[in-house]
């Protein structure tokens, strides 16, 4: 990189930075209120706010039976309502190939 191009692009960066600051300053008052979900908009998924992960416990549990056989189960959740553009539908059928030996 020559000194010349470096200087030019350096100048460009400086300008961009100043302009970005202007954009940031003007958007700060509006972003939250508008709830815009465009790029760099804030996305909130309700459940996550307090779910930082169940921590340790020094207690036992009386909940039993987490024994479902995943190889026979079919995903049955909100994925069923999501449709991908090329019609790769979320999930309704069990995948029965590539299973490890029982």
């Amino acid at each position: 990189m020559t000194a010349h191009t470096k200087k030019i692009s350096g100048l460009a960066i400086g300008c961009s930075f100043a302009a970005a600051l202007g954009m940031a300053a003007s958007s700060q008052s509006t972003t939250a209120a508008d709830g815009v979900e465009k790029c760099y908009g804030v996305a909130k998924a309700g459940e996550n706010d307090c779910a930082a992960g169940k921590g340790t416990s020094c207690a036992g549990t009386s909940k039993i039976d987490y024994q479902g056989n995943a190889w026979k189960l079919v995903p049955k959740g909100t994925c069923e309502t999501m449709e991908l553009p090329d019609t790769r539908k979320g999930s309704l059928e069990a995948v029965d190939r590539d299973l490890p030996p029982a």
Binding site: A45, E47, N48, A51, A52, G53, K54, Y66, Q67, G68, N69, A70, L73, V74, P75, K76, G77, T78, C79, G90, S91
Partner: peptide, 19 residues
């Protein structure tokens, strides 16, 4: 499950627990 709550919702509780 509490670390991956949306993953769990997508496939349902039973499937998630087995996985």
């Amino acid at each position: 499950a509490s670390r991956f709550p949306v993953t769990a919702r997508l496939v349902g509780e039973e499937f998630f627990q087995a996985m």
